[in-house]
Design a binder for these strands. Structure first.
Lengths: 193, 193, 193, 193
DNA sequence: AATGAATGAGATTTCATTCAT
DNA sequence: AATGAATGAAATCTCATTCAT
């Protein structure tokens, strides 16, 4: 029986950090390995190449986040409560695992072509929930036009949410991020009205 | 009478397109030159190196956009009108020069370290205008707390705005973007109330 | 009572196949182990390194073939018969163990430096037999010139023989190869006359 | 106007020599570049990668040889003369450009999968000529069986020819190779009778 | 001004081999 | 005896930049 892998987790952790700090393309294997405290070749025992590592990392963390949001949006509580829980979940994630949170921010801009088209993204959770809520309120299937408006509102809410996070990350607003949970929820609610 | 250099504009155009499509780091001199239909060495006639081209490109286009927003936000019209004009200006820019628009989206994530710290960014225009408007409404200097709230609201508005654009870019919503000028302005106004 | 090692034969078999299909240099330990269904490290239980495995493999199979030819060429039957038996032995080998046959074809081009200089090769068996036969026919030691001619004729016969096999291997002629035993023997005899 | 390429020919020459001496897989870019007296990167200006260089090299030289044989086999002279001319052409090639000659020997064993299936090979020239001659002698289209015999005879002649060359290359027979032109032609003729 | 050639530095990846269990 | 993990060295290839014309 061989020894247990010693480099796998450090490699993932190092890649996560460096991808977030410098971007995927600007991060080399060498640096990842150095930060992980292992050889460059070790990476190739666990993933066939850098792209595969990148993809795996994003998929794992994205699905974590999707699960987080799914949980927050589940249940029978009023929509407002569930929205607030979602914002809180994400902002707490930011404060506790900032790297994971920031990885999600990177996705749109660095990985459009690498991720599978049909992968469920954090935005989808919100969009679906808003859609369902509107349908529930209307007591019927939404018209094409209402559907489109629903998507627009989701976009707006996600935008509010991400941009506030971005401001905190880049120092335009002071953290921690969960300070803003209530105000951001309020802003989101306003767009829904 | 020196005739204008021939390779300069094609190079800028090619760089713009490739930076937007693949990211700055993932785009090489080779590809830029090939797309511009000139040699790799030509670039070094016009800029001392790749970083300088990158920087110049971003600065030029950013200042275009800042000017656009400054113009839209200037004047004595009611704030609502000026906000609407700003949204319209940006969305029209997207529809007419999508590459320039998308370059601006890239800035936050790819260029944090390259651009001069004190450069005025599109967000700043909105933030300043919102700040001024609030001060005007209150008829006095804003308190620290009100200032912070003002920044939060700017973030929200910028977020709405960018995310709607992002949705159109990635095909989640149908373009052209200026279709959404009114609804997006409405959503922004709601957050201001 | 030590039980026989389990990985040894699969490794040899896999190496044989891959060496023949892709060449010695183009075949890695990784692939050999994967084809053998065991770990890469297993190889080092049985041979000190890749070169040793390579050498052992070639030596074993070459000596098999040499023995085959020696047997066919032995005895008191007329030379023609023994030549025919040799061709038949080789062509049957090809039909029954094509990999072994093809490994022998590889020797000249891939292993000049690895095999011991003085090792007896399949060609040597034929050359010796032809030489002996000519001496027997002439009833005396061959002159220098006759010796040289004898070597030339051996080369020709081996060439005929190998090239026909090569044609079958690469699909220029239809197999099985032992179909051609008689015609090839005839052609060889013609060159001897 | 840029300078003329200085590394292209040396690279081809170095690759030719090393491929022949050590085999394609055993020859590295580094060694090729060192022998050519240029940097490793220079190779990539002229061919997209090592495989492309290999392929181009083989294709160029093979078509040279095919042309040589086509010329030798052309004309109205008796077949015997033309066969002799072919053997002479090849053996002279060996003596004058031994590397090119030996490259042809390598083809079957190192490049089966890389070369395009439909490429005309030196063997094809001989096979076609023998086929035509037999048809001419018979004054009619050859039967299926006669065709097959014709291919067998081509194989034999090519085999004689290549194996004699191989013997000279590996020192089993003394060169220069064109010493053997007449005797080899004789041997070939015998197989045709 | 403009070019294709050339390059040193470095990126990614592969390899045969050794290690720890 | 056997394994999967790990590694240093080397292979292939890319990159931004400089050179010679």
């Amino acid at each position: 029986m061989p020894r247990p892998p010693k480099a796998r987790e450090p490699l993932k952790q190092a890649a996560l950090q460096l991808f977030v700090e410098r971007g995927v393309h600007a991060t080399g294997i060498r640096e990842i390995a150095k930060h992980a405290g292992c050889s460059e070749a070790a990476l190739y025992r666990h993933w066939p190449n850098k792209d595969a590592l990148t993809l795996a990392l994003f998929q794992e963390h994205l699905s974590e986040v999707v699960q987080l949001l799914d949980t927050a949006m589940a249940g029978e509580a009023p929509f407002l409560e569930r929205l607030r829980a979602s914002v809180a979940a994400m902002f707490t994630l930011y404060d506790e695992q900032p790297l994971v949170f920031r990885l999600v921010l990177l996705v749109q801009h660095e990985l459009a072509q690498v991720l599978p088209e049909d992968m469920r993204m954090p935005q989808d959770v919100l969009a679906d929930a808003i859609f369902a809520e509107r349908e529930h309120q209307a007591q019927k299937k939404l018209s094409k036009k209402d559907q489109e408006e629903s998507i627009l509102v989701s976009a707006a809410i996600i935008g509010i949410f991400l941009q506030v996070a971005t401001y905190v990350i880049y120092g335009r607003m002071e953290g921690p991020l969960n300070t803003y949970t209530d105000s951001v929820t309020d802003l989101c609610v306003k767009t829904l009205s």
